[in-house]
Design a protein around this nucleic acid. Sequence first.
RNA 1: GGUCGCGUAGCUCAGUUGGUUAGAGCGCUGCAUUCACAUUGCAGAAGUCACAGGUUCAAGUCCUGUCGCGACCA
Length: 907
Amino acid sequence: MAEIPKSYDPQGVEQRWYDLWVSSGCFKGVVDPSRESFAVMIPPPNVTGVLHMGHLLNNTLQDIMVRRARQEGKSALWLPGTDHAGIATQSRVEKELKQKEGRSRHDLGREKFLVRASEWRDRHGGIILSQLRKLGASCDWDRTVHTLDAGYSEAVLQAFVTLYERGYVYRGKRMVNWCPVSQTGLSDEEVVMKPSKGQLFRMRYEVADEPGTWLEISTTRPETIPGDTAVAVHPDDERYRRLIGKYVWRPFPRARIPIVGDTAVDREFGTGVLKVTPAHDRTDFEIGRRHSLPVLDVMNPDGTMSPDAGPLAGMERFKARIAAAKLLEELGCLVKTEPYENTVGFSERADVPIEPRLSEQWFIRYPKIEEAKRAVTSGIIRFHPERWTKTYLHWLDNIQDWCVSRQLWWGHRIPVWYRKGADRNDPANRHVSLTAPSDPAGWEQDPDVLDTWASSWLWCLATIGWRKPGVTTPELAHWYPTGALATGPDIIFLWVARMIIAGLELHGPERKNLTDDEIRARVPFHRVYFNGIIRDKLGRKMSKSLGNSPEPLDLIAKFGADGLRFGLLSIAPKGQDILFDEDRVAQGRNFCNKLWNAARFRQMSGPMANNSDLGAVISRLVPASLDDDDFAILHGLAELTDSTNRNLADHEFTAYAQGLYSFFWGDFCDWYVEASKSRLADPALRDSCLAVQDLVLRQFLLMLHPVAPFISEELWHLLGYGGTEDFIQRHHTGTGGELLKALRVHGIKPAASKVTAVASLREFVASVRALKSQAGQATRRDAVVSVQAKDGAARASLESARDKVCRLAGLSAVEFTDDLGGRPGAVTPLGTVSLDVGSNVDIAAERTRIGKELEKLEKAVSAGESKLSNEAFVSKAPAQILEGARRQLEESKARRDELARMLAALG
RNA sequence: GGUCGCGUAGCUCAGUUGGUUAGAGCGCUGCAUUCACAUUGCAGAAGUCACAGGUUCAAGUCCUGUCGCGACCA
């Protein structure tokens, strides 16, 4: 075996193993019906995207699940891919086109533009997938899918056609969210509500039939005044009821518009009078419909004012707002202007306020809403943390039809052709199919494309071969439904809920209602893990403009992929936002280094022996030469095995990482290895002791592997647990019970009582160290203590562990006495211990120290006494608790008395 | 306005069916470097578990209310 360098250097190790894993086919998903399947589909990142902190965490979690599944012998698949990201990609390509050539996509034309966009994607896209390799992501790269791939596209269009045929798709003129920058409609889910500071304009309209009578109206959007076709008041509003049916003068362009009564008016808002602009507001549109008002569109698709806007025509919408206010003032219609804050919908992609706009769009009425709810409420799909269930159900309860058409070119073109010159809203004039009509000359295809989410909602299906309902593939049959989905709660509606709906409706033949068994077979996954959003140290969202987002690849280079993964995991409270702190990642790096050095110590402590499998290692243990520490660490190892199994199964990733950390660092390195040093010096005991280390390291590496794949693989081979090509992913720890059984068969029974004995000894050593530290003797190795042992057993225990204690506490001798007299010391579970400091006792300091501890114990004693003198407690508390309380009180009393005696003796 | 979450050491957070003296990491203070590891070790200081009620023999944990913070939906 090669000598292990002094500190862990991840760089070379990571690259070497990653290449070997890939070339050996470690990540390949193999359809093997004889094994349980476990698939994870990566949440497809935008093809234009680069790796950010959120991806690191999200993909680490997926990698953990998949690597774990491989260790468990499942036929695992982690399928990678990217999303074409309609708006994002198209606007970037358009921007580049504009900058480099000063041309727009219209100058280029659809065909050429799409070629450009594809080239752009091939050149810049998919960076993120290569970056994921640096993280150690064990994706089956041969199966990488892009949403615009031919097969995937076929699935997307087929889904649309199928839903059309089943009556869930319709076309209509509706109010949609319009993004003036991208110039496309958006779904409600792509609109982000933001509080915005603006102004509230209070203006007055003169009642036409009663000159001199004015109605005061409040608005935040005076630029839409030219589109007003009425004003509305609440029909029960005493102030205005008599005016309903009369007319007011719209100030510009001046026109008589009616006053209508409508219950949608909020009497409390402003003056209780509403200007009604049916073309530019959802509520107003509804009011307009109820009162048959004309719809006057005063805005162009690009956000400038249309010719119908009269004096505002041609202006940009926000300039028009200022101009409108000025105009009102000139006309004497402006009463006052006040600062106002309200929430405004912004386009998620372009980050500009959206305009409610009337346009022809395609909509999907969601199928299987009932089943989608039942899938989660019945536990067929489980959310972690569970509380997101409510959010999910609330959305389904208030679900709105989905506007799926986008006025873009980059995407899946809507598979609908219209008969030229005919009424498009008459289904007879439509051809809805994956293929063009047989007489193309008479038809024209819908120019729009589908919402990107209308392709990614098929992700779990179409990535493994779904092309139409009822037709399956070996991959689909094997891996669908997938094992788990890991994603952020921010896309619970955009993606998670829609995938569930898509699976329920499209995976299988058409059914009106589904049974629970059918739901179970059709859902895309059985578990969803929602990871938190990563924020900076101050709780702000990571963003490029704030410059508070560290470069992931730099972090990997600096701390190692394993360190980063471990660090991220240990700070990721489930479902809660995560405040990123580089110090935590450093902690992960440190942990890897600690592990590295523990392995290094093992190597330096003696020759390597047969580590080829668990049985070989166990057979090297010599039961007769094991001591309490061996039993305790083996017992702890078995417990860690069980808690690791449990935590991973429950998606308790933080607890998983913390369990590994405290066992390895606290129990194994700080105690076991240190304690075993004296035995390692004894040739008679050495080999068995090394075998224990080999056993612990082996099992520990197996448990660590999902979160720290590189270092675990490296050490797995360096320490001889697996030969060439015998990767750690092929092995598993089994359960703690199985480990204990294997030990028992070999004549070793790690009992819990040994753990208690070791704990007492650890406490004793800690007390001695504290006494030495207190006395300024911390560095001395020749200190001497006197012990008044609690009883014979305690004395025997200390005597048998004398070497160990001397080494760990830095003592040259432990002397036993029946009476410590008045010497100051510390009370431990094994007895009272006093440091021999000659005549240099700092009486005052000792008095303070002991006094303080005494005070604590007094409190504990009185609390215990009052508890035990409480009749109700004694009669009602379970025996175990009662017994515990009694024992604790006795211990507290004994310690208190001992300390009191000591204090008294100090004078 | 509605829903959900959070409030525990200076900071970030654990604390999973209520049960012994509430833990960790970081930070801070002191000590240690021919010892596997200074990416280290040892020790120490530091908490009215937001507040107020209630249920219970027993509450950080359950219930109600209040305050503060955050997210999502209107």
